[in-house]
Design a protein around this nucleic acid. Structure first.
Lengths: 337, 337
DNA sequence: CAAAAAAATGCACGCGTGTGCAAAAACAGT
DNA sequence: ACTGTTTTTGCACACGCGTGCATTTTTTTG
């Protein structure tokens, strides 16, 4: 693919020679708020464009020790909400001049190595958008130092070395619980996802506490080991298929939409019951599928855009403590509850 | 987050001093098949581990002109199949030692700038997994040179400067068409996606030619401007909602699963008809949702894993011509056709 | 119009590693 | 022990740009 007659690598020196200035002036032309006169910059840019020159970000990063690059670690691709977060985060990062290194963490054992992988590229920050990051991994990460910032997105963590950006699970779940109560549901079933350690959600706990306190009994709880609609379908089937009708829950409150979608499928196609008339369902996240004709899912929307903007604020921030932040989302009432 | 008392940046020099060897020996220890004695390597690695040293990949890339990094450009996050490709590609790349730079291309106008963005990081290859890459962008990319390899994934292109890795659309669509014919469908409707230029699919054309040749009439065709289930639902509704029953298609053949899912939703929930009894549906891709209880979609599965493995072969290949390759997938018959 | 202030430009040095070759060390065979 | 061979190690130089400061040019001001 090498074009003949064209130099293999155009550097700032080449452009400098062509424009009749020094190399440093060339690089200044490419740097915002650099001290350079408008007409020199124009002259340089003209030469650069003709020669197809663009600064080498590796060298820039090496020299300045800032890369404008952040690693995104993800491990849970079955959850459609991940796609939404990924899209929003990469879009907003790019809009604000940040590139993203995507690292697909294979499993829990792999998380540590993924972290080191990112650190070798000397990224300015590492963003965790997954579930399999437990204490060991986090402490290993810290002991390896080389991590400027370790950000946990859409999940809260108590680790002091970590910055957590997430919705306020307690507020959100309380709002959901109030809604469930106000609609007169009496036998809620809580469908929880995998339980994690360092970085977790406080949804199940909040819902159950709320219900026990207000209604004087604990809701039934089932747990799915992965945020995967098909797995959720299977767990709900096992939980409900042989039960007499009057012992069935009247609503399934799900930790997120992936679980809710699986639950709805089972209710409709395996149990042959109606949603919401026989069993209502409520989700969390508001994934694109939740809005489709088929699901029309009642769910809680996280303000992902706002969270992603704040994420970039954090990337660009100089301070390194007290950056945790929680957000409020909004209950989206559709047809399933 | 700086740990006190620890040096800010541990370099190979530090490790060399600690291990009593030269810097070059330290770096050799980290390089496979480098000429180094086992016990020296062990000694170096021990010191390196204690000090938390890992080679700086930016500097390595700068010096060697190889980054083991490839850019992934994506623009179409509404299509669930993108998530599958992304997952598979990043997983296999990582397994084989490659990192990925994810670039979210905002729109067609942005594609060129995204390409330049990637080139500034001096990636070894740029992989296009989107639709909005037309001739202009590709030629701009080439004229900017700095692109070692430009790979178009899951789409074919005739550009000589490009490497295309895709399923054999003609073979796949022919298999689908044979299936449709053999099942006795008589009024197929082809639901196509957005039409593109340089990088395209040959599905619609193949299906229509096949049908015209064998049945002597052209199937009806509708086109959706984005691979988005909700948009597909809307187009199908407009196309079919006021039609007398006997003029409705008996099968909708969709360019991919995103469209098929939207079509099914409309058939069931808006037209109040049954799938496949009233209208059958067939998709393409075999996204995870296709397998769920709710859809049980008949579709064509692309061998993404195999394609991703080949992609890495291409990344590692020295030659730079004749690397295009097409793959055969498999028809997955479920309940919708 | 000269002097002072401000803006623009040039430069030595450093960032951390790879390459190819030369020097040194280890090993083999007699 | 001695030579020839192979393995291992060290090193000068290069990769392309940023930083901080010194120098030059331009602008401002009395």
């Amino acid at each position: 693919m090498k074009k003949q007659g064209l130099p293999e690598n155009i550097t700032a020196d080449d452009v400098a020679a062509a424009a009749g200035v020094s190399r440093w002036t060339v690089n200044r032309a490419f740097k915002r708020d650099a001290s350079i006169s408008p007409k020199t910059r124009e002259k340089v840019m003209k030469a650069a464009t003709e020669m197809g020159y663009l600064p080498d970000l590796r060298a820039a990063s090496l020299a300045s020790d800032r890369s404008n690059l952040a690693a995104l670690l993800i491990d849970d691709f079955a959850n459609p909400h991940k796609l939404v977060m990924l899209e929003r985060i990469t879009r907003i990062m790019r809009k604000r001049g940040w590139d993203s290194l995507l690292v697909n963490t294979l499993d829990r054992a792999d998380a540590g190595s993924a972290l080191l992988n990112a650190s070798q590229r000397r990224v300015d920050a590492t963003i965790l958008i997954g579930i399999q990051f437990d204490d060991e991994v986090l402490s290993a990460a810290q002991s390896a130092r080389r991590f400027r910032k370790l950000i946990i997105f859409a999940r809260t963590s108590n680790s002091p070395d970590t910055i957590s950006i997430a919705v306020d699970d307690e507020a959100a779940t309380t709002e959901i619980a109030h809604y469930v109560e106000s609609k007169g549901y009496k036998r809620p079933l809580y469908l929880a996802g995998p339980r994690t350690y360092s970085a977790h959600l406080r949804r199940k706990e909040t819902f159950c506490c709320f219900w026990k306190e207000r209604q004087n009994y604990a809701p039934e709880v089932f747990s799915v080991s992965k945020y995967d609609p098909m797995l959720s379908s299977e767990i709900v089937r096992q939980a409900l298929c042989n039960r007499p009708k009057d012992t069935l829950p009247d609503i399934i409150v799900c930790e997120n939409d992936a679980l809710a979608i699986g639950a709805i499928d089972t209710i409709r196609h395996t149990l042959k019951l109606r949603v919401p008339e026989d069993i209502a369902v409520i989700g969390f996240d508001d994934v694109p599928l939740a809005e489709t004709l088929n699901y029309r899912l009642t769910t809680y929307r996280q303000p992902i855009t706002e969270m992603a903007e704040y994420l970039v604020d954090v990337l660009e921030s100089e301070q390194d403590t007290n950056l945790d932040k929680t957000f409020l989302g909004q209950l989206v009432v559709r047809d399933t509850a």
